[in-house]
Amino acid sequence: MAPSEDQHACVIPGGFTVLSLRFSEDDAHAALHQLCVKEHRVRSESNTNRPLDRTLFVLNVPPYCSQSVITDVFSRFGSIQSVELNEKPGPSESSDTESEYFTAKRRQCFRVAYIVFEDPSSVNAAKRHPLNAPLIVSTADRPVKTGIRKWIQQYSDSLINSSSLQQDVDQFMNDYDRRKQEEAERQKEEAEQQLEDEEGWVKVKRGNRGVKVRPHSETADERTLQKEKKKKERKELQNFYSWQHRNTQKEHIAELRKKFEEDKQRIALLRAQRKFRPY
């Protein structure tokens, strides 16, 4: 350990300052827990929630220290904007749950903390804190529950209030219905814009910026392709060569002869049926 400018502060290799942590004031003879803190200076990390000049990086945070406990312990150095607890250093750990009623169970382990102060001087004050003046976790004003009292509190917090849950469910369904209605109206408006008249013209409406635009969608593109295909089939050259023209005429004459023979047979049959036969 190398002493810093302040004789009471303890700095170790890596630029970390060691702070002592005691669970309660009554445990005067209990072993102290040590925290390692330093100013957060990771410039490659693109996280606006961790300002480089106001963020304190803390290692070896015990499991019984929650965000509220860390806020109460380090508030002596200045006003705290936010506290973030992660299992390991790195980017923010995003939560997969979208509801406050169903939260993932967190593993009980030592963590790292990112404490964002409102004033940059608070970071320097925490780094200059003497080693022989331990920070107290549980006091008479802000007691921290442990043992069976902590389990009872966790069980009570896990119980969901039915009225508040029903209110949130109703709010979610109302928002869902509103989004579905807006989507249906948007699709209806898009379908109206894509209607074509008998000659294939599309009614174009003025856009938001006063520019005439034609709506583009998968249905409109498919309809346009089918229309171009039919137009191409109509424009295809037929009987371009003389031999194609002769073959077409021969087929037409053969069809006329076949139809003539069928008509002759039909007339002969009608005449035979009309012949008078008394006996």
Rank of each mutant, 00 (worst) to 15 (best):
K88E: 13
I115S: 01
S95F: 03
A113F: 06
P62T: 00
Q154H: 04
I136E: 10
A126L: 10
V123C: 09
K145L: 15
Y114G: 01
P120A: 09
V58D: 06
S94C: 03
R107W: 03
S68V: 10
Q153T: 12
D119R: 14
I152W: 08
A104R: 13
E84V: 07
E118N: 12
E84K: 04
S138Q: 06
L52T: 00
G147E: 02
P130M: 10
L159E: 10
N60A: 11
Y101L: 05
S99H: 05
E93L: 05
S99R: 06
Y101A: 06
L52R: 07
A126P: 12
S66W: 02
C109T: 12
S95G: 00
Y155W: 13
D157A: 14
E87C: 10
I148H: 07
V137Y: 02
L59Q: 14
V137G: 02
Y64V: 06
K127W: 04
V73I: 15
V137C: 03
C65F: 10
E100P: 09
F117P: 01
E100G: 15
L52G: 00
F74C: 02
K88I: 05
L85S: 06
R54L: 08
Q67W: 05
N60V: 02
V123L: 07
L135G: 08
S121D: 09
P134T: 02
